[in-house]
Design a protein around this nucleic acid. Sequence first.
DNA 1: ACCCGGTGTTACTTACGGTAACACCGAGTC
DNA 2: GACTCGGTGTTACCGTAAGTAACACCGGGT
Lengths: 218, 218
Amino acid sequence: MDTTQRTEQQRSADRRRRELLEAADRVVLREGPHASMNAIAAEAGITKPILYRHFGDKGGLYAALAQRHTDALLDSLRAALDAPAERRRRVEATLDTYLAAIEARPQVYRFLMHPAEGAPAPGDQGEQGFDVGKHSAPLLRRMGEELAQVIEERLDLGPAGQRLARVWGHGIVGMMHAAGDWWLGERPCSRAELVHGLADLLWGRLAVAGDRAGGPGF
Amino acid sequence: MDTTQRTEQQRSADRRRRELLEAADRVVLREGPHASMNAIAAEAGITKPILYRHFGDKGGLYAALAQRHTDALLDSLRAALDAPAERRRRVEATLDTYLAAIEARPQVYRFLMHPAEGAPAPGDQGEQGFDVGKHSAPLLRRMGEELAQVIEERLDLGPAGQRLARVWGHGIVGMMHAAGDWWLGERPCSRAELVHGLADLLWGRLAVAGDRAGGPGF
DNA sequence: ACCCGGTGTTACTTACGGTAACACCGAGTC
DNA sequence: GACTCGGTGTTACCGTAAGTAACACCGGGT
C-alpha cells in the first residue's frame, strides 16, 4: 500500500466519480430531483450497480451532488460577506448574491432544498422519531451556521452573544430563503426591491413603522 | 336529484372522508410521511382502492390531511396576532405560539413541511420546468400571505406598502420557520430565549450592535 | 323481478431502489 | 506463459409501493 500506487488508484476513482457526478448533474438539471438511478446511469453510459458501488445509495449520490453546489454557493456568499464595505452594504450584497444564484439556476436551487426526497431505506426500522428537526436541507443549516459564525466574530452582542448569533444566523438565512422562494415563484418585484425590503426589515423598520389610520395598531 | 337526497349522500360521504382522514392522521403520526397507502387503508379497516376513490392519489390525501392541520395552526396564529397588546408583545406571542405548536407535535410539523414527498405522477411529461418556486410547503406560503395581509392592514408603510408587506410577511415567516427548525433539532436554548432573540432581530438590534474589538467590523 | 349507484374486494401492472452473481481485463507475480 | 487479484462492467433478479382494472355485494326506486 505505498503512497504512489494508492494515489494512482485514487486519482482514477476520483476522476470516475467526478464524471458520474457530472452526468448525474445533467440528469437532475434536466429532470428534477425525481431523476431515477437508471436514468442517471444511462446518462453516464453505464448501469446502476456502478453508481451504487461509488455512492452507496441514492442518498449518498445526492449528498455528494448537493455538496458540490453548496460549496460553490457558500464561497460566493462568503465573498459578499467579506467585502470591504459598511455593514448594510454587505448585508445587501449577500442577499443579492443569494438571490442572483437562485434566479440564475432555479433547478439547482430546488434540488438543494429538497435533496432528501428518496431513500426511505427498506430496512427502515428504528428511528421512530424520524429525524424531526434534521429534515431541513443541509444547505440551509450550513448557511445558518456560517452566518452565525460571522456575526459572532464581528458583532459585540453582550454576554449571550454566541447563542444570539446562532439564532440570528439561522433566522436571517430562513428569511432569505423563504422570501427568495416566494419571489422566484411570483416575481412580484425586482431583485433590488426585494433586497432593499429585506434589509429594511433587518434594520428595524418594522418596529418604527407608524400605525395605519383606523385600526387598533399592529 | 333532489336536494335532500343529495345532501344525504354527501353527508355520508363526508363522514366517511373524515374517518379516513383521521385514520391517515394516526398512521402518519406514527410512521411519518413515508406511510404507505396500504398502511393507511389497513388502519382505516379498508383497502387501497377506496382511498383512491376518495382522494384521487396520494398527493390528494396528503393535501387534505395537511389542510386540516394548516387551518388549525393558522387559527392559533391569527388569535395571537389579533390579541390586544402592543406590537412587540404581539409579535412575541405569535412567535411563541408557532414554536409551541411545533414543539408539541413535531411529527405533524414535519409532515406539513414536507408534504410533497410522493406523487411524482407516472405520466409526468410536461412541466419540464418542474414548479420551481412553488415547491415550498403550502403552509409556509399561507402563513406568509396571511402575515403580509395583517402587516399591510395595520402598518403605514408608504406608497410601496403592499409590496413591502408581502416581502416582510414571507421573510418573517421564513425566519420563524428556519429558526424553529434549527431550534427543534438542537435545543440550544429555551423557547423564551429564542422568541426574545428573534424579536430583537426584528427590532433592528442587528443594525445598532457595536463592532467587536479587533475586527474590521460587520 | 330488475336495474343502479355506492361500497368493498382481489389481483394485477408498472416503476423504482437496491443487490447477487457472473464476465472481462490489465497489472503484477511465480 | 499460466495465475491470481482488484477494478469495472453486465444481466437478472427481489421487495415495495403507487395506482388500476374487474368483479362482488347490497339497498332502494320503478
